[in-house]
């Protein structure tokens, strides 16, 4: 599939040979939509799986569950075809934890994500957080738009996305969202 765009922060290149742990899960968004608590359950499971890498396991589990839940909720909400599998992959490299999600999204959601990530890469996250709060407080949209901003503001997450064309469907794109967290930021809670 052709790459049509890259946006967001510059991420640290990683050597797979230095990877300590890897876990990849595929889900159907419809399962999450039908039982919303599955988002939370999956986030807790993944957090529990990776917490063993951390000295303060309860704190790490809290932080990881919080972040992963936001990403899983986004997969459920922004997947164009709720019956097409989406994926979430977590890799632990010692000093860094990376999370990559992949889903197919419609053009408006893809455009909005690109704009948000571009803005996040150049704007103070605290300022963006307050601006988004004031904005969403006065609307009843399905999503708050705060999740990614919050991960950056609270845990210093670095975020980037690759957008690829879907063959034969100009209105849909494969979105690969990559998130990178320093392990010490997770341990500080």
């Amino acid at each position: 599939m052709d790459l049509v765009g890259q946006v967001g922060d510059t991420l640290t290149p990683q050597d797979p040979a230095e990877r300590l742990s890897k876990l990849r899960v595929e889900l159907l968004p419809i399962d999450l939509i039908v039982q919303w608590r599955r988002c939370s359950k999956m986030a807790d499971f993944l957090a529990g799986y990776f917490e063993y890498h951390f000295e303060d396991r309860p704190v790490a589990a809290q932080v990881l569950s919080t972040g992963l839940n936001e990403l899983i909720e986004n997969l459920a909400k922004f997947s164009a075809n709720k019956q097409k599998p989406v994926s979430i992959e977590i890799n632990h490299y010692g000093e860094l934890l990376t999370v990559t999600t992949e889903n197919e999204a419609a053009r408006p959601q893809t455009t909005a994500l690109r704009a948000r990530l571009a803005r996040m890469a150049t704007t103070d996250p605290e300022e963006l957080f307050l601006e988004q709060l004031e904005h969403t407080a006065s609307s009843d949209r399905a999503a708050s738009g705060l999740g990614l901003i919050n991960l950056k503001k609270d845990y210093g997450a670095r975020l980037a996305a690759e957008i690829r064309a879907v063959p034969d469907d100009p209105e849909r794109f494969v979105v690969s969202l990559q998130l990178e967290l320093n392990v010490d930021a997770i341990e500080r809670g």
């Binding site: 919080t66 839940n69 936001e70 909720e73 709060l133 004031e134 969403t136 708050s144 705060l146 919050n150």
Partner: peptide, 12 residues
């Protein structure tokens, strides 16, 4: 113990 980003909007 946990609140998602939609909940943070609700608190705001």
């Amino acid at each position: 113990q946990f609140l998602n980003s939609s909940g943070i909007t609700a608190l705001s």
